[in-house]
Amino acid sequence: MLDFYIFINLFFRGYYPRGGGEIIVRVPPVKHLNPINLVDRGTVTKIYGRAFVAGVLPYKMVKDMASAALRCIRREMRDLHVNIQTVQEPKDGAFGNGSGIIIVAETSTGCLLAGSSLGKKGVTADQVGNEAAEILLRNLRHGGCVDEYLQDQLIIFMALADGISQVRTGPLTLHTQTAIHFAELLTKAKFTIKKCEEPNTENYIIECHGIGFKNKNI
């Protein structure tokens, strides 16, 4: 895993498309990045999430999103405990109107995979909850250690790390393929992709020989 920490202070929530949120992010510098090793997903141990509404939107939408997501998950995972928190954001802690849901699956090896969806005009709360749950389930089916939205975010860290990184993913997204292409051009790191030969899954190992970039300022 990457040996650095990120500290985030949330002061105000903002919602698509107007935004208006406010956070402060602090990232202490490090001398170098250790390689990533995410190849053993383990088993899913718990699922939890957060459904929210803000502004003038009714609290009933939160209940509908959470209930729809739970029904969808239960069709494939009957025995696992699922805890989706329902939240009405305080008016002094959010800007504008918004709704949405995020659902996270945590595994026995510490992997986190997620699905999320935002409310929008013309889309029911049930549809929003279903979409988030379907995205999560889709990312659990492929057997990888990261979801489709984290895939490409790890590429630059793998390229800069000091050593060989390996990450098990589902089908490679176009964002990931693009990130690999430009990471190789910019850093001269070398990536290889190998399809895993496992029944009933479609996952890949992304391997990278990182360049061992050093922070000369510390």
Score class of each variant (00 low, 15 high):
Asn139Trp: 01
Leu33Trp: 05
Met77Gly: 01
Val53Gly: 03
Gln153Glu: 13
Phe12Lys: 14
Gln127Pro: 00
Gln88Leu: 11
Lys195Glu: 15
Ala51Asn: 07
Ala183Ile: 12
Thr201Ser: 09
Ile23Asp: 06
Thr43Ala: 10
Arg41Phe: 01
Phe182Ile: 15
Asn34Leu: 10
Asn203Phe: 06
His175Ile: 01
Arg75Thr: 07
Asp79Lys: 08
Cys208Asn: 04
Met158Pro: 02
Leu160Met: 14
Gly119Glu: 14
Arg13Asn: 04
Lys195Val: 09
Leu57Thr: 03
Asp64Asn: 07
Gly14Thr: 11
Val25Gly: 10
Gln127Phe: 02
Leu80Asn: 01
Glu148Val: 02
Gly144Ser: 11
Ile47Trp: 06
Ile206Pro: 00
Ile164Val: 15
Arg168Ile: 11
Arg141His: 10
Ile8Asp: 07
Ile47Arg: 10
Glu202Asn: 14
Ile47Asn: 09
Thr176Tyr: 02
Phe7Glu: 07
Gln127Thr: 10
Leu57Lys: 06
Thr192Val: 01
Val62Trp: 00
Gly55His: 04
Ala105Tyr: 00
Leu174Asn: 15
Thr178Leu: 14
Val87Met: 14
Arg50Ala: 10
Ala161Cys: 15
Val53Asp: 08
Gly143Arg: 13
Val87Tyr: 12
His175Lys: 13
Ala69Val: 07
Lys188Gly: 02
Asn200Phe: 12
Leu150Arg: 15
Ala125Gly: 05
Val53Leu: 02
Cys111Pro: 03
Asp92Ala: 07
Val87Gly: 05
Leu186Trp: 06
Thr187Met: 05
Ala161Pro: 07
Gln153Pro: 01
Gly100Trp: 02
Leu154Arg: 01
Ile164Phe: 11
Gly93Thr: 08
Met1Pro: 00
Ser67Arg: 06
Glu197Met: 04
Ile8Val: 15
Val146Met: 04
Ile102Leu: 14
Ile164Gly: 04
Asp40Asn: 14
His81Leu: 12
Leu113Ser: 10
Leu112Gly: 02
Asn37Leu: 12
Gly96Glu: 06
Ala133Val: 05
Arg78Ile: 02
Thr86Gly: 15
Ala94Asp: 08
Phe95Ile: 13
Leu154Pro: 01
Asp64Ile: 11
Glu207Met: 05
Leu154Glu: 03
Thr107Asp: 05
Leu118His: 06
Ile84Tyr: 07
Gly129Ala: 12
Phe157His: 13
Glu76Cys: 01
Gly20Thr: 11
Gln153Ser: 15
Gly119Thr: 12
Ser99Asn: 10
Ser108His: 11
Leu57Arg: 07
Tyr48Met: 04
Ser117Arg: 09
Gly100Met: 07
Thr192Glu: 01
Ile206His: 00
Lys216Gln: 09
Glu207Phe: 00
Thr43Leu: 09
Gln153Thr: 15
Leu140Gln: 03
Asn34Arg: 12
Gly100Glu: 11
Val62Met: 00
Lys63Trp: 02
Ala161Trp: 05
Asn9Thr: 13
Ile73Ala: 03
Ala68Tyr: 04
Ile193Trp: 08
Met77Tyr: 03
Val53Pro: 04
